[in-house]
Design a protein around this nucleic acid. Structure first.
Length: 369
DNA sequence: AAACAAGCCAACCGCCCTCAT
DNA sequence: GATGAGGGCGGTTGGCTTGTT
């Protein structure tokens, strides 16, 4: 297949992005959301194709990116996830808040593969090199810990974030149970200073430490014992988020955050009726927008739109209302067990700023809806 | 200081999937 | 069902930076 059709239509710029181009794209998306990517360059006044804009946004301009070098914990996590998922970089990135698939892929290809070989581990199979070499000598393919690379896979495996029942899925599930991912557990929550959703991993391997909490994120625990079938976290719950308040100046003005409302969507897990009064739903989020952003997410539902509009219409709320997004995963605790749903990503919800003086005003706004 | 090698990483390419028509 | 546009993903490239000789 040739180059994407949008690139034929006119002479478009390629190569590195200039600061001016970055500014145009950032300003446009912050104000209007990306909507249809193919229309973004024209609307934003850029001589780029939509794909290029999308890539630049995802890999560089997105406000929830962590940037900087990978920690040892992150490297360990990548190796573990690669052993499970193979070269499914986007799925690995989905489990690493603030990191992009491109970034992880580059790290793997430039650094981690080499490190594994130096430790005597084959980076493809994650088995000892001696074992792999023995297999090669016998001229028989070694068993793969994960499905082969995308191009040789059946298509339904290639990009499914939640593969249908298969040995692969079983492998994934069993591996994930070892990770015991518990996101934002508890009723208190916390606010970290890093970008992206917050994860808390507990490993059975003693040598692997949990990664540091991501930047600019807040937990949004929801206690089903007080609201068994919610549409939104109640104003009373929202008020409690005052404890997520952060010192002035820590967060960039456009990226204040806390989550004051979360409406489980139709596909949200678990169904409320399946939970008992002692169960909790929990997750984490990032707040992206400084103002209400129509079209920020094409899949937002009417209630989110209406809520954000209502927030916007309140006096003095204009700069605070907007959309946030769950960029990681959510889970729930049922009985003693943590559950994890890999499909719960990129769920959009209205959110608002975390300035302490506004907490009660926001709670009041929710109370009027 | 210059030349070269190696490493890093942003961005592109090609393929495939989904969805609207 | 066929087609095409839009978008997502993994593989790859090429230019820049850093290290070495």
């Amino acid at each position: 297949m040739g180059r994407h059709s949008c690139c034929y239509k006119q002479k478009l710029r390629k190569g590195l992005w200039s600061p001016e181009e970055d500014e145009k794209l950032l300003r446009y998306i912050t104000q209007f959301g990306h909507g249809c990517w193919s229309s973004v360059p024209k609307q934003a006044g850029l001589q780029r194709c939509g794909k290029s804009c999308r890539l630049r946004w995802i890999n560089y301009l997105r406000p929830d990116l962590k940037r900087g070098t990978f920690s040892q914990e992150e490297e360990d996590l990548i190796v573990e996830l690669h052993a499970i998922l193979g070269n499914r970089w986007s799925q690995i990135a989905a489990r690493m808040p603030g990191r992009t698939d491109n970034e992880i892929k580059n790290l793997w290809n430039s650094c981690l593969k080499k490190k594994l070989r130096q430790r005597g581990i084959d980076p493809v199979t994650h088995k000892p090199l001696s074992e792999v070499e023995t297999c090669d000598e016998k001229d028989s393919p070694s068993p793969q810990p994960h499905p082969p690379p995308a191009k040789s896979q059946p298509q339904d495996h290639k990009r499914s974030s939640s593969p249908s029942s298969s040995s692969y899925e079983d492998n994934l599930k069993s591996s994930m149970s070892g990770l015991e991912i518990d996101i934002g557990i508890g009723t208190g929550g916390s606010l970290s200073e890093q970008t992206g959703p917050s994860y808390s991993h507990s490993y059975h391997h003693d040598h692997v430490q949990p990664p540091p909490p991501p930047k600019f994120s807040a937990h949004f625990p929801y206690d089903y014992s007080s609201n068994p079938a919610p549409n939104w976290v109640s104003p009373q719950t929202a008020k409690s988020y005052g404890e997520f308040d952060t010192a002035p100046g820590i967060l960039p003005p456009l990226f204040h955050q806390t989550t004051l409302g979360y409406r489980p969507g139709a596909s949200t897990v678990p169904p409320p009726e399946s939970l008992s009064s002692t169960d909790q739903v929990n997750g984490s989020c990032s707040f992206f927008g400084g103002t209400f952003q129509d079209g920020w997410n094409q899949n937002h539902n009417p209630l989110m739109m209406a809520t954000a509009s209502a927030m916007q219409q309140q006096q003095g709320m204009h700069e605070l209302a907007g959309f946030g997004s769950i960029t990681g995963d959510i889970g729930w605790i049922q009985g003693q067990q943590n559950h994890y749903h890999p499909k719960q990503q990129q769920r959009t919800f209205p959110s608002s700023g975390a300035c302490s003086k506004d907490i009660h005003r926001l709670a009041a706004v929710f109370g009027h809806l």
